[in-house]
C-alpha cells in the first residue's frame, strides 16, 4: 500500500519535472533556434506558402519534376509505406506497371535507364527527395513542357542537389518541391 502511494506521487512528480525541465525547455529552444518556430519548416513562392520543406507532395503535371510513388498518396496527416515483401507477385506487377507509365511519360528513355527508386514507394509515403539520377532522367520532359532548354533546367537541378552531411556522410539528394519552386521562379 505504501508502494502504491509512492507510485502515484512519483508519477505525478515526474510529469511535472519532465514538463518543466524538458518539454518547456525544448519548446523555448524551438521558439528561438528552430527554422519555423517549432512548426514544420515551409517553402514559399511569391510570398505564398506552397508546402512543407521536408514533406513530399504529389506532382503530376508535366511542367514539374515528379517525386517517388507513395503508398498513401502523399497524405501528410497519415504516413505509411506499402509494406510489400520483395517476392510479392502483386507488388512486382505494380512496379511493372509503374515502369510502363514512367516510360510512356519519358519516351526518350531506355528501360535500363529507369531508376528503381522512381518506381518503388518510400517508407513514409512522404519522401520529399529524389536522387540526382531520378532528376536527371526527367530533365528533357520538363524542359520540353516549359519551353526551356535542357541546359537551363539542368543548371537549376544542379544548384538544388543537396550534398551529404559535411560532404562525407549520407546520400546525395534533390528536394522535389524546392526544385520545382526554383523552376517557377526562373520562369517568372
Amino acid at each position: 500500500m505504501k508502494n502504491l502511494w509512492i507510485s502515484l506521487k512519483f508519477t505525478l512528480v515526474m510529469c511535472m519535472v519532465l514538463t518543466i525541465g524538458y518539454v518547456l525547455i525544448l519548446r523555448l529552444v524551438a521558439a528561438v533556434a528552430s527554422p519555423n518556430d517549432g512548426e514544420a519548416p515551409v517553402v514559399e513562392l511569391n510570398g505564398k506558402v506552397v508546402g512543407a520543406a521536408n514533406v513530399g507532395q504529389r506532382f503530376t503535371s508535366s511542367i514539374y519534376f515528379w517525386g517517388r510513388p507513395s503508398a498513401v498518396d502523399y497524405n501528410g496527416g497519415g504516413s505509411g509505406g506499402s509494406n510489400k515483401g520483395t517476392n510479392n507477385p502483386e507488388y512486382l506487377a505494380d512496379v511493372e506497371a509503374r515502369i510502363d507509365t514512367f516510360l510512356k511519360a519519358h519516351p526518350y528513355l531506355e528501360r535500363k535507364e529507369v531508376p528503381a527508386e522512381m518506381v518503388t514507394a518510400s517508407g513514409s509515403g512522404l519522401d520529399p527527395d529524389i536522387s540526382p539520377r531520378g532528376a536527371e532522367v526527367q530533365i528533357r520532359r520538363v524542359a520540353e513542357a516549359r519551353g526551356m532548354t535542357e541546359d537551363q533546367v539542368r543548371e537549376i537541378v544542379e544548384n538544388t542537389i543537396q550534398k551529404p552531411w559535411m560532404g562525407l556522410f549520407g546520400t546525395y539528394r534533390v528536394n522535389v518541391l524546392k526544385l520545382n519552386v526554383a523552376l517557377d521562379e526562373a520562369q517568372k
Binding site: R68, G81, S82, N83, K84, T86, N87, Y91, L92, V95, E96, I99, R111, K112, E113, V114, P115, A116, E117, V119, T120, A121, S122, G123, S124, D127, P128, D129, I130, S131, R133, G134, G170, T171, R173
Partner: peptide, 22 residues
C-alpha cells in the same frame, strides 16, 4: 526480382526506404 525487370537499381532496394537515408 527488380533487377530481373531490367531497370537501374543503383541505390539498392528502395521499396519502403527514404532517399535522404539510403
Amino acid at each position: 526480382r527488380i533487377d530481373d525487370m531490367g531497370i537501374a537499381q543503383d541505390l539498392g532496394s528502395m521499396e519502403g526506404k527514404e532517399i535522404r537515408i539510403g
